[in-house]
């Protein structure tokens, strides 16, 4: 995993787990790597990983069972809620950036449609 070094790394670790849960790559009951394994895997300070895991435990995303490891504890309801939250954040950011470029909402809608249509048919259109 490549980190964006201009953002807190522990948050990016949490977001990565959220995405995997949202896309159902990780499901309730799945075991995830230990903090030490994960730190070595992604080359990150073990204390940073500890912080991410602790926060995920506080959010009830994961639970650590003594002597057994850490497991996903987020169920379907939480999955839906996280998906909504993350998608909402992306949309807000997108809209904010477009508006700051001076685009009106109607234009943003048109551009979105325009961009999405060719992708629906599975082809990529290069635009300049």
């Amino acid at each position: 995993m490549d980190f964006d070094n201009s953002q807190p790394i522990y948050m990016q670790i949490i977001d990565e787990y959220k995405k995997n849960i949202i896309r159902s790559k990780l499901k309730k009951g799945d075991k995830i790597p230990s903090q030490r394994e994960y730190a070595q895997m992604v080359r990150v300070n073990p204390n940073t990983v500890q912080r991410a895991y602790r926060e995920m435990e506080n959010m009830d995303m994961v639970e650590t069972l003594r002597g057994q490891g850490t497991f996903i504890s987020a169920g379907e309801q939480m999955r839906e809620q996280m998906a909504k939250e993350m998608a909402g954040k992306v949309m807000k950011h997108f809209i904010h950036e477009m508006r700051s470029l001076g685009y009106e909402d109607a234009m943003i809608m048109d551009m979105l449609k325009c961009e999405l249509e060719p992708m629906e048919e599975g082809e990529q259109v290069d635009r300049v």
Partner: peptide
């Protein structure tokens, strides 16, 4: 390090 990234939206190199 994490606090500095959060406050400045910048990497340590920057």
């Amino acid at each position: 390090a994490e606090q500095l990234r959060m406050e400045r939206n910048k990497s340590l190199v920057e």
